[in-house]
Computed example of a mutant assay.
Amino acid sequence: MILIKNAYIYTMGEKNYEHGSLLIKDKKIEYVGPNLEEKDAEIVIDAKGKFVMPGMIDAHCHLGMWEDAVGFEGADGNEIVDPVSPELRAIDAINPMDRCFEEALLGGITTVATGPGSANVIGGQFSVIKTHGDRVDDMIVKETLAMKCAFGENPKRCYSDIKKSPSTRMATASIMRETLMKAKEYVQNKKKDKDAKFNMKYEALEKVINKEIPLKAHAHRADDILTALRIAKEFDLDITLEHCTEAHLITKYLKEGYQKGIVIGPTLSNRSKIELKNLTFETAGILEKEGIEFAIMTDHPVIPLQYLPVCAGLAAREGLKEDTALRSITINPAKILGIDHRVGSLEVGKDADVVIFDGHPFDLRSKVHKVIINGEIVK
């Protein structure tokens, strides 16, 4: 057992504790509340003057898919050969030996959704993993989280460069529709004919058609966000909206709530392409004022993963409430990823993923004192 005592505990649940304790047993949270004396604890951490919170969660990144300082050999996130590649799986490319996993821990990030990039119209399957381990199989929280798809500049740029469709937004939407129609037909035929011809692409999309997993839609510009929603509604699919750079321009449509989640970012970035011209840290605060729940992402390696709390802190500086900013990198992404029964808040029965800071996590001078994942002190 591990006992953390005398701490300011920010639970992301119903109540915080100014002088609290947290007890960990068998990889789970056994107790969180007012200070507790536990004589049987093997390890006691006196966290007086420190800030204890759930391990942070990045709902959209590419950790382990583009390895740090490696170049082509470590770039395994985009298969720019076929714009429809749903059969690709993140877990077959994630390298947990990438040093960015270590840096993620030093930043207090304990769980991430990681997967393919946005070169393809349909790019493959995202996974949710913990950030500690040396074999990805042992780090998995959810092997098949979502199906990555992309709208806007990236697919048209990547394929026009090789003289192949899509080179327009029309073609991206058309390819998406045709693929979903064929996948839907494939799923229907499978039910009727047990000997139906196997198709690996449509087999991978079956979970999308059956609404077992959502589309994870890359879309920065307002019209691309609305195109993603239009197609999801047309085929009655679940969808999460990723990046959403211009979300603050179309809040009245996002308030309709068809999407299963909104993940904004990376905002700590330059305007590297036209669809980022309205990039601003004010987006989060505007969404909050409109009552729209969201998470904040780094899109690592675009923004190094350890700067996730910096991104949330800058959003707070530009109008987002501090409490909401903390929720946007803990419980909100957990809800969007469908793993809030396990992580995202410090509550009894949840995974013991805990971060102890020596100061407030939004203070740039603060450092991580301890990181605990699955009840094990890993930093």
Rank of each mutant, 00 (worst) to 15 (best):
D138Q: 14
I250F: 04
K233L: 01
M53G: 03
S165W: 14
Y8W: 11
V310G: 09
C149T: 05
K207G: 10
M200P: 09
D340S: 15
T298C: 10
D137P: 15
G74P: 10
K273N: 05
A204P: 06
L36E: 01
M65N: 06
D223Q: 14
I109T: 06
M139S: 05
A222P: 07
K15Q: 10
N154T: 09
I286E: 11
L106S: 13
A325I: 06
G285I: 07
I140A: 01
G265P: 15
E376K: 15
I329F: 03
D92N: 09
L346M: 08
R221D: 13
I329N: 03
H62A: 13
V302Q: 15
G107E: 11
P309F: 02
D299W: 01
E256L: 10
G13E: 05
C61H: 09
M181F: 10
S85M: 05
K277D: 12
D363Q: 11
G77T: 11
I274H: 11
D195K: 15
S174W: 15
A93H: 11
F72K: 07
K184G: 03
N189K: 13
G133F: 04
I225F: 02
N95Y: 15
V187R: 00
V136A: 04
F151H: 13
E282Y: 11
H220V: 01
R135A: 10
C158P: 01
L287F: 03
G375H: 12
I274G: 12
Y307Q: 09
I231E: 00
K260T: 12
I140D: 03
V44A: 02
G107N: 07
H369N: 07
A315V: 11
H62C: 13
H19P: 00
D46N: 09
A7M: 07
E153I: 13
L180V: 05
K201S: 01
L287Y: 05
E206D: 11
I373V: 10
N278M: 01
Y258F: 06
E318C: 15
T179W: 10
T240E: 14
R169A: 12
T245L: 10
L237C: 12
I274R: 03
E288P: 00
S85W: 07
E42A: 12
R342I: 06
I24G: 12
L22H: 01
D46E: 12
I303Y: 15
G285K: 04
T280G: 10
V32K: 03
K216C: 07
H132C: 15
T179D: 04
G107P: 08
Q259Y: 02
R230C: 09
G344K: 13
P309D: 06
A247H: 07
G74C: 08
S165Q: 06
